[in-house]
């Protein structure tokens, strides 16, 4: 086998971490998820309401359906990943933010996860009339 016959190809430019490629692919996949869910989200909150004022009761009634909850949760997760990957790319290319790939995973993973939990918590009052914090 001639694979990896280049000395040092696993060194400094050995492609970085294995997930670098998947992180990029996921950026594209989440883009597709956001397109589908954002259209449903906008449709349900604006057009289907026929211009009525958005109110807590109205949104709460809609969010009793598991399908609509799923749309919002999917949108939240996909949009957060997509946004963080994009912002991180901009910062990286400007020489800002954590510059080691491992720090990237730790820092942006933590930011993304906390934002996701915060977002879920914001949805809870509509679905169950409770929230954790």
């Amino acid at each position: 086998m001639r694979e990896n016959g280049i000395p040092g190809s696993k060194g400094k430019f050995g492609g970085g971490p294995a997930w670098g490629l998947w992180a990029w692919v996921l950026q594209r996949l989440t883009a597709a998820v956001v397109v589908v869910t954002i259209i449903m989200h906008l449709w349900l909150t604006h057009w289907a309401q026929a211009g009525r004022e958005i109110s807590f009761d109205e949104v709460s009634r809609r969010l009793q359906s598991p399908l609509f909850v799923a749309v919002d949760v999917l949108l939240l997760g996909a949009a957060l990943y997509h946004a963080l990957y994009g912002v991180r790319g901009i910062l990286w290319e400007l020489g800002l933010g954590p510059q080691a790939p491992r720090l990237f995973l730790a820092f942006y993973g933590l930011v993304g996860l906390s934002a996701f939990i915060y977002g879920l918590n914001a949805l809870l009052p509509f679905v169950f009339k409770i929230s954790f914090f």
Partner: peptide, 9 residues
């Protein structure tokens, strides 16, 4: 949206 948890909406 997080304001929904205050004053019952």
């Amino acid at each position: 949206i997080s304001t929904a948890r205050f004053e019952d909406g």
